[in-house]
Nucleic acid binder design. Sequence first.
DNA 1: ATGCATTTTTATAGACGTATAGAATCTATA
DNA 2: TATAGATTCTATACGTCTATAAAAATGCAT
Lengths: 222, 222
Amino acid sequence: MRMNTLWPRSRLLRNSRLLRRADAIVDAAASVFAERGYHGTSTQAIADVLGLRQASLYYYFPSKEAALALVCERGVDGFVEAAEAILAGAGTPLEKLTALIGAHLAPNASKRDYVKVFINERRYLADAGRRRIGRKSRRIERCFEEVIRTGIADGSMRAGADVRLTMLAVLGMLNSVINWRAADQEASVARVARELGQLVVAGLVNPVANPAVKPVPARKRA
Amino acid sequence: MRMNTLWPRSRLLRNSRLLRRADAIVDAAASVFAERGYHGTSTQAIADVLGLRQASLYYYFPSKEAALALVCERGVDGFVEAAEAILAGAGTPLEKLTALIGAHLAPNASKRDYVKVFINERRYLADAGRRRIGRKSRRIERCFEEVIRTGIADGSMRAGADVRLTMLAVLGMLNSVINWRAADQEASVARVARELGQLVVAGLVNPVANPAVKPVPARKRA
DNA sequence: ATGCATTTTTATAGACGTATAGAATCTATA
DNA sequence: TATAGATTCTATACGTCTATAAAAATGCAT
């Protein structure tokens, strides 16, 4: 049964059990952080969610801030990879922008609490963690900038747009979704993505170069 | 000298002095709340900014939360009035939308800390205060919704747009500005307003009904 | 069933945070 | 300058919070 002596079955079991439990702990932390904010939550409140004693949490992380770092880490995880894959893939800048928006909003449904904490609480991370997370944020920002820059360069987007400002505004809009979309309408993230995609693409498209891309065909002719 | 016995000059002086001082106290609270968040700031930290003792603050407000309420109040003050005035005034829906955006962003320069606290920390107000502030927020939201609704009705904006979703997205975008615009470029709020105004208007305009409103004329013909 | 490793609990140190009470100090005016 | 009232200070009660240490309980392999 035992595969080898260096990595016995019991250790595998132990690790997977440990990891599963650690997952549940971080999950609880994420939900309380999301609701009350980092400084607004006590370790007691996290323990309450789990039916654990406050001190027991410290078996899984060395400090409250480490828990925040774990939550933020998982909150941003996947964003960068998805964005860079879209950038590297095929498609026009306008198509890529739409795809970026969809990919950026998708985790709103699947990892709600984690994303919310990443967006709202990452600023409370201490230097080390904040820099790590900051690097990832900047890579996402660069993806959006790159697509906009390319779109302007090839004439498909408005020449006058300020690339950095537009990127910040669009990301600000997308990141706001986590704070206003009601938790109960989980299914509608796709709808939000479609709506915001239309809004942003229509806002950036160059109507001269793209006469066909009328955001939504008017129902009645004038 | 004395105007009357009920309201002696000394009392006038006293009140104006008191109000000025109270203003400075709330100002300090706003700056620390803005930087560290409500739960992240101690009353000690506020007192430090003023060179006052921690306990002395309680001469001016009865609790830390009351200070937050004051800051939030001042943070939202003027928004509603400005927005409703624009709505009631003259202009096409597209013009009014541009004006709303400009008015919504203007306080980013003049009341930076207050606005930031209003945006980021109001959720920590207790019931009474949160409801008061919430009512004002909703009036602002209704202004944006109303303008968009009217624009769609008169054909100047895209028929397909979801009014509520669009309003939330636009406000989310505008409210994000306070968190990413660097504090040192105070002068550029107007530029941000112009850029975001163009983006949103272009995103909502109905190109069929408004062939003239090409967001930015292309420099070179294709 | 026994013994070992893992997980959780109890107990608590020690820092920090809000708020109150009453004394001390300051300021404006008579 | 003496006084009344306004403002700030000292001292502190009292609760809450993070984190540690050691004991207890639990689960697991033999």
